[in-house]
Design a protein around this nucleic acid. Structure first.
Length: 234
DNA sequence: GCATTAAGTATAA
DNA sequence: TTATACTTAATGC
C-alpha cells in the first residue's frame, strides 16, 4: 500500500498532490500486472478510465482503414493515458497494449473528474499534460504530411532520445543510448512507412554519424548534437 | 537441428 | 517510396 502511494506521487500528473491526498486516492486506483502483448484498452471498451504506468512500457496505436497499425506513442513509467470524457489525453479509436511486461494503475473517469473538481491544481496539471501531448501530435502530423521518410526518422529519433535517452558513457558523452529496443519494423509503424525504407534510411544516418548500433538486437545509440543539427535544418 | 524473427538486398512498379 | 521476394544471421525450443 505504502509503495503504491509512493508510486502515485511519481506520476507526473499527481505531483501537485500532498501525501495525505495521495493516501485518499490510493484505494481508487487498482493495480494490475499485464504481460507483454496484452490489450489494455481498446475503442470498444465502454468503461473509460485513466491509466497510470507504474512500470514497463505501453504502446498506443490506431488501425488504418486497410488494417495496418500506426503507432501513435510509446509511453514509459510515470506516463498517463486514456480517454477521459469529451477531452482526451490521446486521440480516440486508440488501442493500448503492453509493449513490455508492465504494471498499470487506473482510475475511473467519474472519480477522476470529481478529483479534479476538488483539486484545481490537479486539473491545471492535467490540462498541461494534455496540451503538451497535443502539441507533440500536431508536430508529428505536420511532418508525416510534408516530411520525407528521412525527416520523419530524424524527428522520431530526436523524440525517442528525449524520452528514453539513457545514461551516456563517460568517455563518449555525446552518444546517447536509447533505452527502448525498437526493430526497424517497429520504427516503421511509428512513421507510417515500410521496414525496408527504415533499414536504408537508418543506414544513411549511420554513415553520417548520427546513429550507431553495436549489432542486431543491440540498443541504438544516437549522437544528440548531430541529430539536433539535422532537426534544425528541417 | 528446425522454425522463427530481424535485417540486408534487389528489382519492378 | 513501396511491394515483393529472396538471403543471411541470430535466437529459441
Amino acid at each position: 500500500m505504502i509503495e503504491k502511494e509512493k508510486f502515485l506521487s511519481r506520476i507526473n500528473l499527481f505531483q501537485s498532490l500532498s501525501e495525505a491526498e495521495l493516501a485518499l486516492l490510493e484505494p481508487a486506483t487498482p493495480m494490475e500486472v499485464v504481460k507483454r502483448g496484452t490489450m489494455i484498452s481498446s475503442p470498444h471498451l465502454k468503461q473509460k478510465r485513466l491509466y497510470l504506468i507504474k512500470a514497463g512500457k505501453v504502446r498506443l496505436y490506431k488501425l488504418s482503414a486497410d488494417g495496418k497499425e500506426l503507432t501513435i506513442d510509446l509511453l514509459g513509467t510515470g506516463h498517463v493515458f486514456g480517454e477521459i470524457g469529451s477531452f482526451t489525453i490521446s486521440p480516440t479509436n486508440m488501442y493500448a497494449e503492453a509493449w513490455e511486461d508492465s504494471v498499470i494503475c487506473s482510475i475511473d473517469k467519474g472519480q477522476f473528474e470529481e478529483l479534479m473538481l476538488e483539486k484545481p491544481r490537479l486539473a491545471l496539471h492535467f490540462i498541461e499534460i494534455v496540451s503538451n501531448r497535443l502539441q507533440e501530435v500536431e508536430e508529428m502530423m505536420e511532418l508525416m504530411a510534408y516530411g520525407s521518410v528521412r525527416q520523419r526518422l530524424v524527428y522520431l529519433l530526436g523524440r525517442l532520445c528525449e524520452k528514453y535517452g539513457g545514461e551516456c558513457q563517460t568517455d563518449t558523452p555525446e552518444w546517447i543510448e536509447l533505452a527502448v529496443n525498437l526493430t526497424h519494423q517497429e520504427l516503421a509503424t511509428m512513421m507510417g512507412c515500410i521496414r525496408e525504407t527504415v533499414t536504408e534510411t537508418l543506414h544513411e544516418l549511420t554513415v553520417e554519424g548520427m546513429v550507431k548500433k553495436a549489432g542486431l538486437r543491440k540498443p541504438l545509440w544516437v549522437h544528440r548534437e548531430r541529430l539536433k543539427e539535422a532537426i534544425g535544418l528541417m
